[in-house]
Computed example of a mutant assay.
Amino acid sequence: MTGLVEAVCVVHADVPVGRRGVELSGIDKRPVQGPIDVHELGLAGDHSRDTKFHGGIDQAVYVYDAAEARRWATELGREIPPGWFGENLRTSGVAVTDSVVGSRWRAGNVLLEVTISRKPCGTFARWAAEPRWVRRFTERADVGAYFRVVEPGTLQSGDLVSIEYVPTHGVTVRDLFLGANPRGIELLLEQKNLPPKVERDARAVLRSPPRRDC
């Protein structure tokens, strides 16, 4: 299975998104021309202001599916350009939210590994400026996926995406987000050397009932 990198996005400018308009966020990401260097903490020219909840090795690259973005554009009646979700890569042709945790993607000459889901927050809601945004985004559960960088390199828009490896436990990013597939998550936790945030989120699923509505 192959896909396409439609856009590579990094921070355009830090924007005020706090309740008093003071707190800054790097959510305003926009497409850039490549090739762009990618290292273990993400893309050159990108950064996270809130490093407690964003960024780091397990959340180095955030990817959103072009098909899911088009569905939102239709529902909201507005253009949803690459980077609007705060994503680094807008891709097409391969499942993102429904990718299996631990799958490895080759994009350009970079090797990426699927880790955890995006969790919508107040910053995202204020950026989107849509009614009940966190609830709606959560209910749809098209949340995109974070990746860690296994092999650094460069990538750019137009690069092909190929899936080089898919684990057998079957747990998807959507499963982690919704708290589904507990048996698969037990198998996931049997894997050696899990990224810390994957283990954290998987154990949280087993401690909590499945999420129905939020």
Rank of each mutant, 00 (worst) to 15 (best):
E113M: 09
G158T: 01
A69Q: 11
E139T: 04
C214H: 13
E75N: 07
A204N: 01
V38N: 00
P120M: 00
D14S: 14
W84D: 06
L111S: 07
R78T: 15
F85Y: 10
L160S: 15
A107E: 04
A7R: 00
R148I: 02
I27K: 00
S99M: 10
L111G: 04
V166D: 03
P120Q: 08
V10K: 10
E151R: 13
K192Q: 13
G158E: 02
G3R: 03
K192W: 03
G42A: 14
E23D: 14
D98G: 13
L189K: 10
T115Y: 12
R148S: 08
T138K: 00
V150K: 02
A69Y: 01
L43I: 07
T172V: 02
R126S: 12
V161G: 01
G21V: 07
G108W: 06
P209I: 05
Q191A: 09
L76T: 08
D201K: 14
L187N: 08
L112K: 03
W72Y: 08
G158I: 03
T74I: 13
R126Q: 07
A128S: 14
E199L: 06
T91A: 02
Y64S: 00
I57W: 14
N193I: 05
F147K: 03
D50P: 09
D142S: 14
R70E: 13
A69T: 02
G3T: 05
P195G: 06
V171M: 04
H12M: 07
D175Y: 04
H12Q: 11
G3K: 03
V8C: 11
R30S: 12
A7M: 09
E40W: 14
E130A: 11
V15L: 12
L41R: 13
T51G: 10
D213T: 10
N109D: 15
G83P: 04
L194N: 07
W84N: 10
L41Y: 11
R20Y: 12
N109Q: 10
G77Y: 05
V10Q: 13
Y146M: 05
V110S: 06
Y62V: 08
C214V: 12
L111D: 12
C214R: 14
V173W: 04
G170T: 01
R78E: 15
T74Q: 13
V32E: 05
E40Y: 15
I163M: 10
D65A: 14
V166W: 06
L41E: 14
L89S: 01
G42K: 07
L176Q: 10
I36Y: 10
E68M: 04
E186I: 06
A66Q: 11
V11I: 15
A141C: 02
P196W: 00
V134M: 12
V161Q: 01
L206V: 00
L206M: 09
